[in-house]
Amino acid sequence: MNPLPFPVPKDLAEAARIQKEMRERVIVAGDPVPVRYVAGLDASHPTRFSRQQGLSVAVAVLWDRQEQRVVEVAQAVLDAEKLFPYVPGFLSFREAPSYLAAVARLSRPPELLLVDGQGIAHPRGLGIAAHLGVHLDLPAIGVAKSLLYGKPQGQLPAEAGSAIPLLDRWGQPMGYIYRSRTGVQPLYVSPGHRVGLVESLEFVRSLPTKVRLPEPLRIAHIEAGKARRRSAEG
């Protein structure tokens, strides 16, 4: 894939303006059931004590839903000092260039992006999954390991497969808190682009899950850690 150049804002005011404009282009509708090739996206960045320095590594794992296997793994390594600064709520401007470079190196374009991060469950409605989905005009779903924004509607049961809506400040659902395995910490699933609210949850549920994360993301997480260690050693 050869996506359009990614806009890098010069300051937070411009970043907020871009987020608002792109949020208006987000489509929260669509059923990804026919999708076969999914790109699981994860990244490994410098530690929180030196976020502006070091190497930023992103991995794209192309997953075949029909054959339930990894087809290909692509990675991109960028100098963290040359990326947008680390600012909570604006992380997509820092992370997206690495993800886009990794996706561009896949020999087959994905039909859907499954991103380690937020979709529309974001203070301005544009987490990394939504940002990438709109930029590439691809269906996208965010699967985050921690809560960024919103509140749960009720208490999440401990059983595998249970889910409760995640509500925005107006009490409207914008995603789900989802327990993939009995007793494990929940995941935060929200549509990114061209996928409906319920459909995003059902798609994640349809993916094999051995531990906590769905397999495309679990493998991407492992590969991103390995790639960053290799890059640091090199």
Rank of each mutant, 00 (worst) to 15 (best):
D168T: 10
R169G: 05
W170Y: 13
W170D: 14
G171I: 08
Q172S: 14
M174T: 12
G175L: 08
Y176R: 00
Y178T: 08
Y178Q: 10
Y178S: 09
R179F: 04
R179D: 07
S180N: 11
S180P: 02
R181L: 07
R181M: 05
T182L: 07
G183H: 08
G183W: 09
V184F: 14
V184H: 09
V184L: 12
V184I: 11
V184M: 12
P186Q: 03
P186Y: 10
L187I: 13
Y188I: 09
Y188Q: 10
V189A: 08
H193L: 03
R194A: 04
R194I: 03
R194M: 07
V195S: 01
V195H: 04
V195T: 00
G196S: 10
G196T: 03
V198N: 11
V198H: 11
V198R: 14
E199A: 14
S200P: 01
L201V: 04
L201I: 02
E202I: 07
F203T: 04
F203C: 06
V204H: 06
R205H: 07
S206F: 03
S206P: 00
S206W: 07
L207K: 02
P208F: 13
K210C: 03
K210R: 13
K210A: 13
R212V: 10
P214Y: 06
E215D: 05
P216H: 04
L217C: 05
L217K: 00
R218W: 04
R218S: 01
R218H: 07
I219S: 07
H221W: 02
E223M: 14
E223D: 03
G225C: 09
K226C: 02
A227D: 05
R228E: 10
R229F: 12
R229V: 11
A232E: 15
E233F: 13
E233L: 15
G234H: 15
